[in-house]
């Protein structure tokens, strides 16, 4: 079953007289449980694609179906609420709320959703342990390393049980050890819990571990390769 389906997605930026086709007719389907890397040179449209399928940015034309719902038709709070319920985000950097502890950050979206405290407490603890941070639940972002922060971000993205997790260059600011660590966690969550991950990256080590690699250039998909384990 496909969780994401884009149809002829385009995104055009006008810059003075000429137009940049950041996305140029992208049609792609992502199946449930995939572990997909979007790769390609700088400026090829990776971020633009992830933003479109995350409901963060409106495409110029085309549709994005998430669980068979066309999210390009959603407006304002509808879209915000949709992201909260169905999509988990891990950004490149600074993506935690600085005044909240690791645990509070992970529980934040559930708090927005009105999840009862007991349930929230159990799930945040479980998730932080799953990403190997059971011992720093009370620390704030500025007391954590970049790798720890990204693991907290993964735990936070997972908390509301989203349909998939989007991560735009999640390892760009991490050293190799933290990168390995984060990849191990994502891979395990994917394998054991069947969570769908889509991430963009330039990092060969990350690409090596992906089970599907979508390569982009000039706003188009130029190759789409599935690999066995």
């Amino acid at each position: 079953m496909s969780v994401i389906k884009t149809i002829d997605l385009t995104k055009v930026y006008k810059q003075g007289d000429y137009e940049i086709h950041a996305l140029d007719g992208v049609s792609v389907e992502i199946e449930n449980g995939e572990f997909t890397a979007v790769v390609g040179p700088s400026g090829s449209g990776k971020t633009t694609l992830l933003n479109a399928i995350g409901g963060l940015d409106e495409p110029t034309s085309g549709s994005v179906f998430v669980n068979n719902e066309d999210i390009t038709q959603l407006k304002g709070n509808q879209l915000i609420d949709f992201r909260m319920k169905h999509i988990g985000f891990v950004f490149q950097a600074y993506n935690l709320i600085p005044v909240l502890t690791a645990k509070e950050n992970v529980g934040f979206v559930m708090l927005l959703q009105g999840t009862p405290e007991a349930e929230r407490d159990a799930r945040t603890t479980e998730l932080l342990e799953a990403v190997g941070l059971g011992d720093i639940m009370k620390k704030r972002p500025n007391q954590m390393s970049g790798g720890q922060q990204q693991r907290v971000a993964v735990a936070r993205a997972l908390a509301p049980k989203p349909a998939y997790i989007l991560a735009d260059e999640p390892t760009a600011n991490l050293d190799s050890k933290s990168t390995e660590n984060l990849l191990d966690i994502m891979a395990r969550l994917n394998k054991e819990e069947g969570i769908t991950f889509i991430f963009s990256t330039h990092d060969q080590r990350v690409i090596d571990r992906a089970r599907r690699v979508i390569t982009m250039e000039d706003g188009k998909i130029i190759s789409d390769e599935r690999r066995g384990e």
Binding site: F91, N95, L96, I97, F108, L112, P160
Partner: peptide, 10 residues
């Protein structure tokens, strides 16, 4: 970030 992860603007 708050907006992205689903906190309403209000």
């Amino acid at each position: 970030v708050l907006l992205a992860i689903g906190m309403r603007k209000g």
